[in-house]
Design a protein around this nucleic acid. Structure first.
Length: 279
DNA sequence: ATGCCTCACGAGGTGAGA
C-alpha cells in the first residue's frame, strides 16, 4: 500500500494537480488536510473518474479533512474520542468540534487524516486548544495500542510542529516567540512517540521540509519547515518499504504551500502476493 | 524560472494560515 498525506490548502483551487499527482505516483490512499470546503462542495467526481473513492469531512471554508482511497474504506469516524472543540476562545469537549480529524480503516490499516490546530501565537486561546487537542490524541493512541498493540495504526497529516531545530528553516519562526517550535508543542509531539508511534519517513528521508510560506521567497530560499508527518504503530513501522517527500509539488502553477509525504507499506499479505509459493 | 502570499467569502475588506 502506498499511503500519502498532503495539506492541499483548498481542494477546489487545485484539484487537477492533486488528482494528477495521485495517479502519476500510484497512490493507494491519500489523506488530505485543509480542503477548505463543505462536504457538498468537494469535487468527488474528479477523484472518482481517476478511480478513487473519497470520504470528506468539512463544515465551512475553514479546516476540512478527507481520505481518497482506491479500495473501499470502513469504520469512518469524523473525530477521535475525547477530541476537544473550539469556539471564541473556549475549548473543551463541550465546545463545537472542528473538521480536523477523519479516521477510516483501509487494507487493514486504521488511518487518520489529521489537521492539528495552528496555535496562532504563544499564549493565544488557540495555542492552549492545540495542546489540549494533542493531549486528547495521545490518550486515544495510548488506549488503542494498550488494547490492540499489533494494530496497524497510521496518524498522518499536518501536525503544525517542527519537532527539532533542524526542522525549522524559516527565519520568522523563532524559538521563544513562535508557535510550532515551543517546548510544550515539541513535548506533545514526543508524547505521541512515547505512546507507541514512530515517524516512519525520517529514517528514510532524514532531511528536508514539507512546507514553505508563500511570502518572501521562502521556497526559492529553501526556508521551510518539516511539519507534515506519517506516524505509525510498530506494525506500520515494520512494514515500511520506502518513503519520499515530493518537494517538486511546491513548484509550478498555483501550488499548495505544503507538499505530499509518501510511504510504501508492504504487509506481505495475500492481496499483493502474486508470486508462486515455493515450499 | 522555485521570485517577494494565498484562499474563501462576497462585493469591501477581513480572517486565517505558521
Amino acid at each position: 500500500m502506498r499511503l500519502a498525506t498532503w495539506n492541499v490548502n483548498s481542494i477546489r483551487a487545485r484539484v487537477d494537480r492533486i488528482v494528477d499527482f495521485a495517479v502519476r505516483e500510484h497512490i493507494d490512499v491519500l489523506a488530505m488536510q485543509e480542503i477548505k470546503c463543505k462536504v457538498d462542495q468537494f469535487p468527488f467526481d474528479r477523484f472518482e473518474e481517476a478511480g478513487f473513492h473519497v470520504e470528506a469531512h468539512g463544515f465551512s471554508q475553514w479546516n476540512g479533512v478527507a481520505i481518497a482511497s482506491r479500495e473501499p474504506v470502513t469504520d469512518v469516524r469524523t473525530a477521535f474520542p475525547g477530541m476537544p472543540g473550539f469556539e471564541k476562545g473556549h475549548t473543551g469537549t463541550d465546545a463545537p468540534l472542528e473538521a480536523r480529524a477523519l479516521g477510516a480503516t483501509v487494507g487493514g490499516v486504521e488511518v487518520w487524516s489529521l489537521y492539528v490546530p495552528n496555535g496562532r501565537s504563544l499564549g493565544d486561546p488557540h495555542f492552549f486548544y492545540k495542546l489540549e487537542w494533542l493531549e486528547a490524541l495521545r490518550e486515544y493512541v495510548s488506549g488503542t495500542l494498550a488494547s490492540q498493540p499489533d494494530l496497524p495504526l497510521a496518524l498522518v497529516g499536518d501536525f503544525n510542529i517542527a519537532p527539532t531545530d533542524a526542522d525549522n528553516g524559516d527565519p520568522a519562526v523563532v524559538q521563544g516567540f513562535s508557535t510550532h517550535v515551543s517546548p510544550p508543542e515539541r513535548e506533545a509531539f514526543a508524547a505521541l512517540e512515547s505512546a507507541g508511534l514512530h515517524d516512519v519517513v525520517r529514517p528514510l528521508v532524514p532531511s528536508g521540509y514539507t512546507y514553505w510560506d508563500y511570502k518572501q521567497l521562502r521556497f526559492p530560499r529553501n526556508q521551510g519547515m518539516r511539519i507534515d508527518f506519517i506516524l505509525g504503530s510498530h506494525a506500520v513501522a515494520d512494514a515500511v518499504a520506502g518513503a519520499a517527500i515530493h518537494r517538486d509539488e511546491r513548484k509550478g502553477e498555483a501550488p499548495s504551500d505544503h507538499v505530499p509525504v509518501v510511504v510504501d507499506l508492504d504487509f506481505d499479505d495475500a492481496d499483493d502476493d502474486d508470486r508462486p509459493m515455493i515450499f
